[in-house]
């Protein structure tokens, strides 16, 4: 491989660090909704940073352009998947963590 440029190395390091924080959040946070928060946000942004690093390293060659496409697909699909999982688990009957403050959705569901 060619030598890794400094800017690319910085971007990829930030991305990998965010990925690791997302994984840690998946372990540490108490319930499914909070885990989704950490997991989707941190891991999506981390992977985006890795792809931006790859784009900086290779410039607008075939690899760089595919990194842009990959980035666009991840930014479109990841929040939709998170939304689907959270709605699915609420319908599945998963309660919020006991320290939670309010659950408007369950209140509105019980009214119907």
């Amino acid at each position: 491989m060619s030598e890794l440029s400094t800017a690319a190395a910085v971007f990829i390091s930030i991305g990998v660090a965010f990925d690791l924080i997302g994984g840690l959040g998946l372990i540490r946070l108490p319930d499914i909704y909070n885990r989704l928060q950490a997991a989707t946000k941190c891991v999506t942004l981390g992977t985006c940073f890795i792809l931006i690093g790859v784009l900086i390293q290779f410039g607008f060659t075939s690899i760089g352009v595919k990194a842009i496409l990959c980035l666009a697909f991840i930014l479109m699909t990841s929040p939709t998947a998170a939304h689907a999982i959270s709605k699915g688990s609420h319908d599945f009957g998963i309660k919020l963590w006991e320290g939670s403050v309010v659950d408007k959705l369950a209140e509105d569901k019980s009214k119907e």
Partner: peptide, 14 residues
């Protein structure tokens, strides 16, 4: 719970 596993699989994919 099953949703926890689903989240982990989603994250693993990314």
């Amino acid at each position: 719970t099953p949703p926890d596993r689903t989240v982990a699989i989603d994250v693993l994919g990314i």
